[in-house]
Amino acid sequence: MRTSIFALFALLLFYSVGSLAQSDIPQVTIKTLDGKPFSTSEITNNGKPVILSFWALWCKPCQKELDAFNENYADWQEETGVKIYAVSIDDSRSTARVMPMVNGKAWEFEVLLDPNSDLKRAMNVNMIPHTFLLDGEGKIVSQHTAYFEGAEFELYEKVKKIAGIE
């Protein structure tokens, strides 16, 4: 059985590479900060780029990356109209702390909850921070893991390219 399943997927993979459509975000229902269901199909930005970043309360580099985004967010929005969504993968042990912390840090972008890692799994995220960049059509154009001081500028160069500003 294992071999046949593997063969099936290998076949799919083989035939799809090259002709493969660029990836959209998978349709998954996650939650807003106040616990309401939120469908990922609502992640849109009127033809402008979107940054989608996975983080958690226990992840220091994630918060440093989001702090860096937040510092530049007003400028970035003005220049390119980019919109940032930060998806917290905190589970029920700490979801209640996410909103106070987000407000406490005065982050200005939208924060969503993925308490059982449904979106994380659907997007094949293993380690966080893991950040995706989507173009105006919602297609994934680039992604990166980890955050080091200054990495936000490289990301922003890509955002500008998508937005057609250079």
Binding site: M99, P100, N103
Partner: peptide, 17 residues
């Protein structure tokens, strides 16, 4: 039982669980 109460506004967040 698990309960939480929080208050938050830009710049300030408090939570009790």
């Amino acid at each position: 039982v698990l309960s939480s109460l929080s208050y938050s506004q830009p710049g300030l967040g408090v939570v009790l669980q």
